[in-house]
Design a protein around this nucleic acid. Structure first.
Lengths: 156, 156
DNA sequence: TCCGATTTGATTGAGTACAACTCAACTGTA
DNA sequence: TACAGTTGAGTTGTACTCAATCAAATCGGA
């Protein structure tokens, strides 16, 4: 494995702007903020939007399956799904085969939101100013970075 | 301004994994998670670590100045700084020139944490598996993406 | 000097995050 | 068929995030 040859040694002061983690954190917040106004018109928060994407993608998924798709655990997902159900966008149905499992289904009202969410997404993606090629390259690099870090997580 | 020529039109279903925002969100969470265990040994959360970086960088900064450095508003920063003060890492001193302003100073105890935090940072950066060149390129690309999106924010 | 506008930090409320825990339901094995 | 161990969803407690709002202090023009 290749090691990072740092310009700045580990024991010397570091600036916030030089941190890769801050660059990621701030860029992520900026993109989330870009979604905020558009999603608010659909009465969705950003994590709720992500969750609806996963539900639209495949109906009847279990809570655990949704959690791995959107990278959230049951502690976050349970109340979030409760709010989506109260808003009438999804239904929760306990499995008959395995009573521990709850399946999530979109309602008609939830289905109606999909094209409107797609329009919001299109506006935000245009605002990134990235070409289609750049878009794909950045995305795949971020996925790669993520899986490298996740692989290293256990022995950190 | 260049427009994104999307492979997938705006009105057609999109998958979670194809979203740039999700790639950013998930990568940011992974890197934050990589910091978690090491920072926990210093009794710091990740936003607290970011804030301490900014305080170590320059002593006596105002709350608003810190907020712009770490991209947090007073609603987040006020209780966060209260906890850092309770932990004995910083002091809050109200300005004599302008009584609205509060300056943040590191304590000796807070200063002692700096090299230990630097060691955590070094371990996490190594875990990214990025070369020094790649590290700098990814970082600058993320900064660029952020400022493009922030510029576009007002007319979204 | 007076007074309206602005700035600064703090507070509140709704909604994530995440670790630690609970509990019912399921599984494999003897 | 027992039953120890595991799994899935939910709950609790602490902390972060952001919009909206507030009070005090400052500033600036008449």
């Amino acid at each position: 494995m290749e090691q990072v040859a740092l310009a700045r040694p580990a024991t010397v002061p570091a600036k916030v702007d030089e941190q890769l983690c801050f660059a990621l954190y701030a860029a992520s917040k900026a993109l989330t903020a870009a979604y905020r106004r558009g999603l608010a018109e659909l009465s969705l928060t950003y994590p709720q939007y992500l969750t609806m994407l996963a539900v639209w993608e495949r109906d009847g998924r279990s809570v655990a399956d949704l959690g791995s798709a959107v990278d959230l655990d049951s502690g976050t997902l349970s109340p979030l799904l409760r709010r989506l159900e109260q808003a009438g966008l999804i239904r929760r149905v306990r499995s008959t085969h395995d009573e521990r499992v709850v399946h999530i289904f979109v309602t008609d009202r939830g289905r109606e939101l999909e094209p409107r969410a797609a329009a919001v997404r299109a506006r935000v993606e245009a605002a990134t100013g990235l070409s289609a090629d750049e878009f794909v390259q950045v995305r795949s690099m971020l996925h790669r970075l993520r899986s490298t870090v996740l692989d290293a997580l256990p022995h950190l």
